[in-house]
Nucleic acid binder design. Sequence first.
DNA 1: CACAAAATGTTGACATGGGCAACATTGCAA
DNA 2: TTGCAATGTTGCCCATGTCAACATTTTGTG
Lengths: 228, 228
Amino acid sequence: MSRTNSTADQRPYHHGDLHRAIVDAALEVLSESQSTEFSLRELARRAGVSHNAPYKHFSDKRELLAAVSGVGFELLAERMADATKELGSPRERLAAMARAYVSGGVQNPALYRLMFGGYLTGQDSDRPAIERTAAYRMKALVVDAMSGGALGHEIPNNAENERKLDGAILVFWSQMHGLTLLLVDRLVGPGEAMRELSDSVLQSMLDGLANCIPVIPPGVWVGPPLAD
Amino acid sequence: MSRTNSTADQRPYHHGDLHRAIVDAALEVLSESQSTEFSLRELARRAGVSHNAPYKHFSDKRELLAAVSGVGFELLAERMADATKELGSPRERLAAMARAYVSGGVQNPALYRLMFGGYLTGQDSDRPAIERTAAYRMKALVVDAMSGGALGHEIPNNAENERKLDGAILVFWSQMHGLTLLLVDRLVGPGEAMRELSDSVLQSMLDGLANCIPVIPPGVWVGPPLAD
DNA sequence: CACAAAATGTTGACATGGGCAACATTGCAA
DNA sequence: TTGCAATGTTGCCCATGTCAACATTTTGTG
């Protein structure tokens, strides 16, 4: 006899899926507080579990945050994949992807910062494996959209074009990344014509890329404005 | 008689400029550990002072970090100003500024992240005043270089052009910002042709801007490669 | 089915760190 | 001179990360 519960034995000794519960709680707190400075103990409390239980699932706070970051990458990748699902033209796909990326970041700044903010990089070791693979998967979406767009139009596969493609990917990604973070950090906006500005930034980037990879034709911006 | 120093009374009761000493120590630790997770107590130790002394100068760890961030903005602004000092053409100035910005960020990732990473934004209140003004000063450099470049070539000062200018500034800044952070977080590079890639990113951005603001003529990349 | 081992949770303890409060020392100003 | 403000110091409290030891289940295996 361990427990002296007067009524029903509400919680069984084992939680069931504490791993998930902790990650979910972390996502919650992250959204609420917009800060990664919550405590593992707080998460344990929310999960209705003792302060050390999480350590049976994460060796470290770092590892927990990495798991959260991994979920973030999955969510973002899913968002981007959804956005580009039924679009044919490379330009449309890239545009939709960019919009999904930026709006995803803006909707949960703390999560985005956790994913890209170097909390996982700055320390001693490399990024934990789980998170790294999720990040790579997301990156692959960008790379595919870009090179798929190019290859779809039969660009000769020589070294010169490969170099250009690398450059274009870097332009695309860093532009999205930078724009997202400027918005997230409120360094531009957030008022007035932010949405139009964002759209025009992405558009002019695509126009710029069109010079680099002739496959992406210039064109008007398509699709709905950025979500808020 | 308070101290019973056997030899010389090394430290006077008052430090002299503890504020500065603490900020300097913070910059040191930040560079070394590449993390903002140092303790105020550690800084106090380094400054050879009791663990609570810093609180006479900073109400908060947040405030200390804000001060550090402010110094970071000043350093970066100085760097950018230096880099553009003797350059005439708008394109050259923007190019130099971009290079200074990116290389500054890459040289001290943790500081750059502190400045732009939203540690100061995420919380309850706005960014502390000291830091905010420093950030604005730096932003003004970008804005000036861009609009000065435009005005220098007598662009009609109508609403349409103003809108374009805003867009161009956002493109420029977010591109620099994104590229810097991708490099900083080791999400691209850091090996191989990173420097060339970076240069080509910035170059193609300027080319793109040339379409938007006809004042920035296309041209070859000028100046030395990015410092490492 | 019994039972040992592996999982999973719990309690307790320790060191570290942020931050408050009370006190000490010093410089400065009236 | 004397009293106040600035600056440092000591001591304390509490929250947190993390380790260790112990408790309770689940599960695989004879």
